[in-house]
Design a protein around this nucleic acid. Structure first.
Lengths: 239, 239
DNA sequence: CAGTGGTCTAGACCACCGA
DNA sequence: CGGTGGTCTAGACCACTGG
């Protein structure tokens, strides 16, 4: 077979690049049909598996929509999206080239009230671990981490040393994570939170609450409070 | 060849499910080696391409890390992540089963000041379109959309009817979107913003600023203000 | 060097869609 | 029915990693 690919770019990447260019340049508009795999196979002189891989990946990326038996079309709305990752704040700060310090405000075992019992699916009065930490970047407080942990998911949570490992890291390593849900809101800090973060009572805060599931257990529920004036979530969408 | 797959599940999905189970159950821990493709090929009695597809997809999903020449290992941190999509608020509200209404506050053509010229990479004093809309869900204001648009990307923006189509939708349809970056913060509303949203001056707001690129142009810059008490971004991570 | 994953082929059978 | 994509095979060559 003639190998038309002495280039550094794999054949399937060349096919992807071609299709992408047609779309981003506007030559193929949303709703337009993309050539069939057979047609692209002819055009590029590669096997169908290779074409299939290229177009399949574009479908995963959301650029095209494929329907078996019908064909491939350019996706209707370029519903561009980005990933919001569950990250360890320690790594995050280090990546910015800054220093990360922690102050452990509180570490206790409590009995589940109605709300806790409900979120963890435990009985009223069951033991639940509770930790409150303040994270600082270059000495400036940037996050309050108010966390409850299910003892069933991380029995030794209370004996962890949070000066050397963060709760996030500890849990990621000790409770295989399977699912999480989050919500981001804007709130005013409580008097205590304002004091911890060193901000005024009227300064708005970004609050992320997150609940993580590990196998059969609700492993942890956490409320992260960020000073709105010093922190933002940011990211990038890309085709 | 013996076909061991009369099940409805494709072979590669079965392989993925097997590996996933080992990881989520904790039998294979982060850092552990995943069996080589050759080993899995033996175990499942399928071709290497099929094994390769399964493991490759797991790598894309972030469950495992692959290094050519070295092997595959269970990913260090289960860096679970979710997608934050650029969505049309009209669709979003309708999906919740509510009604969406818009009030056009302002629609004008302005001359670029220093800041605008910089974000759009235009010369000082160049024409830029400006629109301010208030979006309501069941009659309650939930978003102020303060948007600037590059005429080069959407020349007819000013003649669009924003009572029948939203700026987001209009731009998605008229300016093939290639890239976007965003940032989410917590802020206090200006007096005018508070009045538009019907909230008090001290009520915190979620503010998303987003800039979108379409081909060679910076197409649009938008500031979305949400009342923090009535709106939150939420989502779900899943393995 | 042997073992790994990265890529590719030239077939094949199937389920599905639209005419 | 013919054309589409979904899946799969049994090979193959390569680049890279580690000892």
């Amino acid at each position: 077979m003639p190998r038309l690919n002495p280039l550094p770019l794999p054949a399937y990447e060349q096919v992807k690049a071609f299709v992408k260019t047609q779309i981003t340049s506007g030559r193929w508009r949303p709703g337009d049909a993309v050539p069939s795999e057979a047609a692209l196979q002819q055009q590029f002189g590669v096997s169908r598996m290779t074409i299939n891989r290229a177009v399949k990946e574009l479908a995963v990326e959301g650029l095209v929509t494929r329907v078996q038996g019908s064909g491939t079309v350019v996706a209707q709305l370029h519903r561009i999206s980005s990933t919001l990752a569950l990250r360890d704040i320690h790594e995050e700060v280090l990546e910015r080239g800054h220093t990360h310090t922690v102050h452990v405000e509180l570490l206790e075992t409590v009995r589940a009230n109605v709300a806790l019992a409900h979120t963890f699916k435990l009985r009223l009065g069951a033991k639940v671990f509770h930790s409150v930490l303040v994270h600082s970047e270059d000495g400036v407080a940037i996050q309050i981490e108010d966390r409850y942990v299910n003892p069933a998911a991380a029995p030794k949570y209370m004996s962890a040393d949070f000066n050397t490992t963060t709760p996030t890291r500890y849990l990621l390593e000790h409770a295989p994570l399977t699912e999480a849900s989050y919500s981001i809101e804007a709130c005013l800090p409580s008097a205590h939170e304002a004091r911890c973060l060193g901000i005024k009572a009227g300064d708005p805060c970004l609050v992320m609450t997150r609940s993580t599931i590990s196998g059969a257990h609700v492993a942890s529920w956490v409320r992260l409070v960020y000073p709105g004036t010093r922190y933002s979530f940011s990211g990038k969408f890309q085709l």
